[in-house]
């Protein structure tokens, strides 16, 4: 079997996951203007919530996912209200916020490990009806297909939300200039709080992030074809450093 179609399929699927993640991250970075190191752990909270509700408590999968989204959103919202908001109100530098979010990351990660042990957990028994499809020589499962689909849906919904609703316009205004937005009467605290909730739930933003997500996924998957699987992390971060060095404005200029 030719390996290239499979690599493309894998890249697309990994890219969708990254894209969903970048959507939310971009949203917080765009509005709150700091790198939220704790962001990744929110995705993990979502994953563990599904594990807890659907596997341990036996709730249906969709309900578990829904609860996961809500819980991640809630944690994110709380972190914003009690930690980032007071810091931002004090005009703390980006470094302070970054370190605080690093603290959030470390603490939440540890709490999850205490609750669920640091061994990995499997959800595979929930997915007994996971069908396998084949297209142009690449195989993928129903779950992977739905990841791709959800990515597309989330992206469309969010693009629509940002472009056509009052909320979206407020978000865009805040990411341009928070002071001015405040002056013209936008409740910036509430909007940024909402953003933290949404991004925690996994909805998100915009073209550059998507392109980056897929670029990364392709680089990783094709990278391990030619190099070796163990180097995945190195490839990712090597790419990051190359971008930071030579194209810090990203793929698309903002």
């Amino acid at each position: 079997m030719d390996i290239v179609p499979q690599l493309i399929t894998n890249s697309l699927i990994a890219g969708s996951i990254y894209a969903i993640l970048t959507l939310g991250f971009n949203l917080t970075y765009g509005t709150a203007k700091f790198i939220d190191m704790g962001y990744g752990v929110l995705a993990v909270i979502g994953g563990y919530s599904v594990f807890y509700f659907s596997k341990l408590l036996g709730l249906p999968l969709w309900l578990g996912a829904l609860l996961g989204i809500t819980i991640s959103g809630l944690v994110s919202y709380l972190a914003y209200t009690f930690i980032y908001k007071p810091l931002r109100a004090r005009k703390s530098s980006g470094a302070v916020l970054l370190i605080a979010s690093l603290g959030v990351l470390t603490a939440l990660q540890a709490v999850i490990a205490i609750l669920f042990t640091s061994q990995f957990q499997t959800l595979s028994s929930l997915l007994s009806g996971n069908r396998i499809f084949e297209l142009f020589g690449g195989t993928f499962t129903a779950v992977q297909l739905s990841i791709f689909g959800i990515g597309v849906v989330l992206f469309t919904v969010l693009a629509f939300l940002l472009k056509y609703t009052l909320f979206g316009k407020a978000v865009t205004a805040i990411s341009d200039d928070e002071e001015v937005s405040k002056i013209v009467g936008i409740n910036t605290d509430r909007i940024v709080g909402c953003i933290f909730f949404i991004s925690g739930g996994g909805i998100g933003n915009i073209y550059g992030g998507i392109a980056g997500a897929f670029l990364l996924a392709f680089a990783e998957n094709f990278g391990i074809w030619k190099i070796a699987g163990e180097w995945k992390g190195a490839i990712t971060f090597g790419l990051l450093i190359m971008f930071l060095l030579w194209r810090p404005q990203g793929i698309f200029k903002r």
Binding site: L87, S92, L102, G103, T106
Partner: peptide, 10 residues
């Protein structure tokens, strides 16, 4: 450690 970092920053 995590909580300590957050509290320090605050």
């Amino acid at each position: 450690y995590g909580i300590l970092l957050v509290v320090l920053m605050l």
